[in-house]
Design a protein around this nucleic acid. Sequence first.
DNA 1: AGGTATCGTTAGCACAGCTAACGATCACTC
DNA 2: GAGTGATCGTTAGCTGTGCTAACGATACCT
Lengths: 172, 172
Amino acid sequence: MTSRRSEERANALADKLHSTAIHLLRQLRKEDDASGLSAPRLSALSVVVFGGPLTLGQLAAAEQVKPPTMTRIVTGLEKDGLVQRLDDPHDRRLTQIRATSKGRNVLAAGRARRVERLATAVRRLGATELAELVRGAQLLEEIIRSMRAERTEGRSHRARDSDAERRQRRTM
Amino acid sequence: MTSRRSEERANALADKLHSTAIHLLRQLRKEDDASGLSAPRLSALSVVVFGGPLTLGQLAAAEQVKPPTMTRIVTGLEKDGLVQRLDDPHDRRLTQIRATSKGRNVLAAGRARRVERLATAVRRLGATELAELVRGAQLLEEIIRSMRAERTEGRSHRARDSDAERRQRRTM
DNA sequence: AGGTATCGTTAGCACAGCTAACGATCACTC
DNA sequence: GAGTGATCGTTAGCTGTGCTAACGATACCT
């Protein structure tokens, strides 16, 4: 039973999370230049490094991006010698993406640099606040997971049928 | 006294906040098509609506963006009839940006639509969890504020001197 | 073998971010 | 008052990210 009151609070919170995420990323983007890696590239590289070799399609899905977009990101990373494209011997349509040792090194450095400012600020928190923020991040992560799930199941209860919706459905 | 242990936790948290923000915005971006307003435009419009009339430069600063970028965003909003450019009678170099009534209406609708998915997910939380998330958002907001402040003061303790740093300093 | 599906790429669009350079205006000084 | 320098917004041009549409290559399946 969602009361009028708690619904408003949920809306306000959603709104704040939205703008907060925007501003956080705008701040962090400023550190990108230092590592020479943009956010999408850094994020993709991270998946490749930690997620082992995987196909371009899998990588695109993991990053919630369409294949053409990931093609370009990988091309950029490859040009910098951070990842390799490898032919899959079993299915030659696939191209496996693997991190090079340079990629692993750069990731460690770049990632550290990128989060440094954030981590510095986070370190100023007391233990209690840190725990609270960890909890908040955890909740937000679950929420995002549930949002993603919502997109592929139980669509019928959703009323509107915008372009975005149709496109989404088409590409499923 | 920052222990080795808590430093690691801070790094891990910073890392998680980073990727979480990326994924949250990627999800929300999918709703943009529905409102016809991209995230930067929606955000700028929001500032104009709630922050009253303000100059383009102030708007750019508020959105942490360079003036040329804001010029284009405002041009787009103006083309859609959501904001107006007004000459300042006291200083004719300035252009005041003001929201139209259409802009106010569209903001309400678009903003609601954009956060709808997020709000829906948020509403599934229990009261306790909601409070926890509110607290987390609040902490994160403060952290971002402190990050921004750090950029303009006490720069000396920062060791590296990258292109990004230099550019930042130059444009201060 | 032939048709269909899948994968990655290419081409082409829109948008957001930046710097550099410029014109217009203001403010200050001589 | 005239000139000099600062400030504001715009324009031009670059890079990068995201998308769809269309295509070639390969695999699968009957």
